[in-house]
């Protein structure tokens, strides 16, 4: 087998990994630490000859390990798929050259954790809003009503475009509202790009450990306030994927 090191993230050197913790790949290697100075990399062995990683299970293993770790100690999570030639390369090419930068980033993350707030428009409600607000949309709706799709293609395209643009504008507004409501509870806020056409808000939040309950309550209240038109979800606690220093 040609072994390589899969890297999950960077942690302070004074941590331990529970024996028997399994990583990505098939068969999965045991998760261990490569230590250098004050920092360490969470790694596991993968067999490069066994073919590509990327099964759903691998993605879940990667995220679960990092999120569970983040609940205990500061961690700089790596994007899925970081593989180096071996523990030596991890120490020499990753940890050594970036030691101070990683160590100071970990210091800043001490006692902090990430959450993600996701808002998704209730389709029916948002379409009603757009119809009520936009005369052209209302007119186009009349034009396509009961008529064959092929004959009304232009009208449909234009109507769809209006809807898409209207949602973009609303997304901006609603994202602002989410940030305004939650930012006071957070250390940092980072907007994510929308990944769904009905996304109303997609925001990552970095919070102090002791503010987690406050944040959950605030998100719940926010969700209640907007529930007719937006479904709000709170994901977390997560590793600080959105608050790691740029590579």
């Amino acid at each position: 087998m040609a072994a390589a090191s899969y890297v999950y993230g960077i942690v302070p050197a004074d941590v331990e990994v529970a024996p028997g913790t399994l990583g990505v790949g098939e068969p999965p290697g045991e998760v261990s630490l490569v230590t250098f100075g004050k920092i360490a990399a969470l790694v596991s062995e993968v067999d490069v000859e066994r073919g590509p990683l990327g099964r759903m299970e691998d993605l879940r293993t990667h995220q679960r390990l990092l999120d569970e770790t983040a609940a205990e100690v500061p961690v700089l999570p790596f994007r899925f798929g970081a593989v180096m030639t071996g523990p030596g390369a991890v120490a020499d090419e990753l940890l050594a050259p970036h030691h101070d930068e990683f160590a100071s980033a970990l210091d800043k993350l001490e006692g902090r954790i990430e959450y993600v707030v996701k808002g998704r428009y209730v389709e029916r409600e948002i379409l009603r809003e757009i119809l009520a607000e936009n005369e052209e949309a209302a007119r186009l709706r009349e034009a396509i009503r009961g008529r064959d799709e092929a004959v009304t293609r232009n009208e449909r395209m234009r109507l769809g475009e209006i809807v898409e643009q209207a949602i973009s504008a609303k997304r901006e507004e609603d994202t602002r509202e989410v940030i305004d409501a939650l930012a006071p509870l957070c250390v940092a806020v980072s907007e994510r790009e929308p990944t769904h056409e009905r996304d109303a808000a997609y925001v990552a939040l970095l919070v102090e450990d002791e503010r987690q309950d406050d944040l959950r309550r605030a998100v719940e209240e926010l969700g209640e306030r907007v529930r007719d038109r937006i479904e709000v979800r709170l994901l977390g606690p997560l590793a600080p994927y959105d608050f790691t220093p740029p590579e």
Binding site: A4, V7, G9, I10, V46, V48, G51, P52, L53, G54, L59, H62, Q63, L66, L76, P77, F78, R79, F80, G81, A82, V83, M84, T85, A89, E93, L94, V116, R192, A204, L238, A239, Y241, D242, T244, P245, E247
Partner: peptide, 18 residues
């Protein structure tokens, strides 16, 4: 989250098997 966010190892140092 994990395909879009997080640190990335320098391209020269990583093995491509994803």
């Amino acid at each position: 989250t994990i395909l879009d966010k997080g640190l990335v190892i320098d391209a020269y140092a990583r093995v491509s098997l994803i």
